[in-house]
Amino acid sequence: MHRFILKRLLLLIPVLLGVSLLVFAIMSFTPGDPAQLILGENAPAEAVAELREEMGLNDPFVLRYAHFVGNAVTGDLGQSYTSGRDVFDEIFSRFPNTLILAALGVLIAVVIGIPIGIISATRQYSMIDSGSMIFALLGVSMPNFWLGLMMILLFAVNLGWVPSGGYSSWSSLIMPAITLGTGSAAIITRMTRSSMLEVIRQDYIRTARAKGVAENVVINRHALKNALIPVITVIGLQFGMLLGGAVLTETVFSWPGVGRMMVDAIRQKDTPTVLGAVVFLATTFSLVNLFVDLLYGFVDPRIKSQYA
C-alpha cells in the first residue's frame, strides 16, 4: 500500500516536469517582453535591457527552464510580473476560495446525482427515469456561464435573494456552487444509472433477491457498493476538473479563485503566475486522482489486494 502511494507520488515528477516544460516553452516563445511589461510602456530602453539581464531573460531557454525548476523544488515559484507578489502566496491566498467552491459543487452533484441515478436505474423506462435523463441531458449540454447568468438574472436581479457575485458571505457561494454542481450532477446521474443497471443484472443480485433479501437492502448494500466504483472515478475527475477548470464560473460570479487568476495571468503574460498556477493545479489534480484510487480499495477489497 505504502509502496503504491510512493510509486504514484514519484510518477508526479515526470508529469509536473512535462507540464511545466510545455507551459514554460509556450510562454517563452510567444511574443512580448516581460521586462517591458514589468516596467511599463514608458520605461527607458536601458532600464528594460538592464532588467532583462537581471531576470536572466537573455539566457538560453534550457538554462532559464533549469533555473525555474531549481527554484520551484525549493518552493520558490518566483514573483508575479504584474503585482510583484510571491506566486506561491498568491496561489494559496486564493486556493481556499476555489477549494470551497469545488467541494460544494461536487457535494451538490453527489447529493443530486447518485440518488437520482439509483432511482432511474431501479425504475428503468419509468416517468422518473425519463425525467431524470432529460434533466441529465440538459445539465450536460447547458453551458455553465449561461446557467450562471440566468441564475443571476432571476435570483440576484429580480428576486434579490443572493448577491450577484464576489465573495462576501456564505450566500455568495450558493449560485456559483449550483452552477458548478449542475453539470457534474448530470454526469454523475448518468454514470450511476448505467453502472447500476449493469450491476443489478448480475447473478449475485438475483441470488440475493431469491434469498428473499429486502429490495432496499439488495440495492443499497449489495448493488450500490459495486456500482459506485466507476462513479467514484467520475466524482474524482469532476472534483479535479472543478478545482482547475472553474474559470468561466469564477468569471461570471467575479469569484476570486485560482482559475481566474490563471486566465488573468495568461492575458497579461505573467509567466511566473501562469507556471505556478499550472503546476499547482496539475499537482492537485494528480493528488485527487491518487486519493480516488486509494478510495477504490475501501469500496472494493479486490482492488486493495492489487496494491501490494
Binding site: I152, G165, G166, T251, V252, F253, S254, D264
Partner: peptide, 18 residues
C-alpha cells in the same frame, strides 16, 4: 473597491444595490 471583471456584472451589481 471590488474587482468585478465583467462589465455586465458591474451593471447587475449596481441594479441589485451591491
Amino acid at each position: 473597491f471590488r474587482n468585478i471583471p465583467e462589465g455586465t456584472n458591474r451593471a447587475i451589481a449596481l441594479e441589485t444595490g451591491e
